[in-house]
């Protein structure tokens, strides 16, 4: 684990995307994406729905397959090679909009599943680590319950703990708070902020602009499958350059 935030700027890139293009049938979803994420960097991606932001981060752990261009994660280029895909997925954690906890397993079992079957750890050790992370997301007392018995916010925190158990080098967040009731958003964001402060490399697709302002190193605005604007949060919010960024920001911050 890289507990200390590596000095941004001179470390090797954690994620590299060069000229990435993707189509759904004839629909051109990702257009010439170039993106470099340094180790320890926190990036927030925003944009209107259908702009390709989810697709972009889902390409990073190969849940979606890109058709042109190159993606390198932690020095491993993503190709059709199943071994490499699994290797990349082991180092990339992902949190989904709809949590996607396994309803037939308890919270604890959800967290141990990949540890015992992929990392081949003894069960006791896996449980100890799982409890440690559940403790960190403040939900250890629910470990023996099933996901269906938890609130949305609790489920999402479990989902974060489940990813962290594999010691990922990058965490991907795909609209982690969009399916939550307003009073539960904060408990999830708190966990994410804490994670960011510990120096985790993060890519978040989110509309929580408060989170972007306090945590992000860079904010990326996407529209129609391309990266329109990319800047540090301060200039991004105070002085957006592109017309469409301005329009988007006025729409979501307007009221």
């Amino acid at each position: 684990m890289n507990e200390q935030a590596t000095q941004a700027g001179n470390a090797a890139p954690m994620v590299e995307m060069r000229g990435v293009n993707k189509w759904y049938g004839d629909f051109h979803v990702l257009r010439d994406i170039d993106l470099e994420v340094r180790r320890g960097e926190r990036i927030v991606i925003c944009g209107p729905s259908g702009s390709g932001k989810s697709t972009l981060i889902r390409c990073i752990n190969h849940l979606e397959e890109h058709q042109a261009g190159e993606i390198v994660v932690g020095g491993v280029p993503l190709t059709q090679d199943v071994k490499r895909i699994e290797q990349v997925r082991r180092s990339v954690g992902m949190v989904f909009q709809h949590f996607n906890l396994f309803p037939h397993l308890t919270v604890l079992e959800n967290c141990c599943l990949a540890q015992t079957w992929v990392q081949k750890k003894p069960r006791r050790e896996a449980e100890r680590l799982a409890m440690q992370y559940l403790e960190r997301v403040k939900i250890a007392e629910q470990a023996r319950k099933y996901p269906g018995q938890l609130s949305g916010g609790q489920q999402q925190r479990v989902a974060i703990a489940r990813s962290l158990c594999l010691h990922p080098e990058v965490m991907l967040f795909d609209e982690p708070t969009s399916a939550l009731d307003p009073e539960m958003i904060k408990e999830v964001l708190d966990v994410m902020v804490e994670l960011a402060e510990e120096g985790m490399t993060m890519l978040c697709v989110t509309h929580e602009m408060g989170f972007a302002k306090t945590v992000a190193d860079r904010v990326i605005f996407m529209d129609q499958g391309q990266i329109i604007e990319e800047n540090a949060p301060e200039p991004f919010f105070n002085n957006p350059q592109s017309e469409r960024t301005q329009l988007f920001l006025s729409q979501i911050l307007g009221h």
């Binding site: 293009n21 004839d26 051109h28 499958g225 990319e230 540090a232």
Partner: peptide, 14 residues
């Protein structure tokens, strides 16, 4: 800082 002013037109899939 990157700002993209030129729009990329949709291209046909390979």
């Amino acid at each position: 800082m990157t700002i993209q002013h030129k729009m990329i037109e949709a291209r046909p899939a390979p």
